[in-house]
Nucleic acid binder design. Structure first.
Lengths: 119, 119
DNA sequence: ACAAGATTTAGAATAATACTAATTTTATTA
DNA sequence: TAATAAAATTAGTATTATTCTAAATCTTGT
C-alpha cells in the first residue's frame, strides 16, 4: 500500500462516510499535497484490495467506508448515514439464501430521531 | 401517471434491472417516439411516487427495478443481478434495529452457479 | 548513484444525468 | 367545440463525478 493510500485509509477510518471530494478536501486541510487523480487512484486500489467498500449513492457521489462487515441506516429526511452492526447477519443470510455469500451491502431507510424531532 | 411513464413502468416490470439507457433503447425498439430526457423525467417521477427503486451501481449506470420489497444477489464474477425474496426480512430488521424502517436496499455478493461452472 | 519500475500529476476526455427554455400535448372551461 | 390553462415533452446544453493519458517524479534494489 502506498503512502498516499495509507493516508486516505486513515481518513476514511476517522471520517463519516466521505465522498472522494470530501477526502480530497481533508487531504488539503491536512496540508498534504495530493492531486484528485491520486485520490481516485488510491480509492480504486484500496477497493480492489478489499480494504474499503464503495457505497454508490442515488443521485450523488459515491461514498467510501471501511470494509468491516456492517450495514447502514440512512435517514430519508436528512440523508445522514450511520453504521448498523447486526452480528448474526452473515449467518442469517447464509441460511436464507442457501448459499455462501462473499459480502453484502445493506441500507435501511428510516427517519432519524433528530428528524422526528425527538432530539 | 403519464402515458410515457406508464410505458416505462411496463418495461421495468418485464426487463431485468435495466439502466436508463436500456429503457431508452427498448422504447425505440418498440417504435415509440420518446426522448432520453423523458426517460429520465419519467424515472424521476416514478421514483418519487415510490413506484420504482433505484439501484446505483459501483462504477456504472443506475439500474431500476419494481418497488416490491426484495433484495438482490449480485454475481461478483459476471455482474448478473437476480432478485432475492426473504419474507421475514422486514420483521427481522425491525427486531434488530429496534425501530420502524421505511424500506431497505439489500445486495448480497456471491459467485453465481454459472460462474462456478456448475451449469 | 543508477536503472527499472511504480506512483503521481495536470489536464483532457467521457459518461451519466440534470437543466433550460421553447414546443407540443392534454385537460378544462366557456 | 373553441379558447385557455396546465402539464408533459423535447433538443440541446450544462454539470458532475470519474477515468484516461502521457509526462514527470519518486522509490527501490543493486
Amino acid at each position: 500500500m502506498t503512502h498516499n493510500a495509507s493516508k486516505i485509509l486513515d481518513i476514511i477510518n476517522y471520517s463519516d462516510h466521505p465522498t472522494a471530494d470530501d477526502i480530497y478536501m481533508e487531504v488539503k486541510r491536512l496540508g498534504i499535497k495530493m492531486s484528485p487523480a491520486t485520490v481516485y487512484n488510491s480509492l480504486a486500489a484500496l477497493h480492489s484490495e478489499g480494504a474499503i467498500v464503495k457505497l454508490p449513492d442515488e443521485g450523488g457521489a459515491t461514498r467510501y467506508d471501511k470494509s468491516l462487515p456492517h450495514g447502514h441506516m440512512i435517514c430519508s429526511a436528512c440523508g445522514r448515514i450511520s453504521d448498523l452492526f447486526i452480528d448474526d447477519f452473515p449467518d442469517y443470510l447464509r441460511e436464507r439464501t442457501g448459499t455462501d455469500t462473499e459480502g453484502y451491502d445493506l441500507r435501511v431507510f428510516h427517519t432519524c430521531p433528530m428528524c422526528r424531532g425527538l432530539v
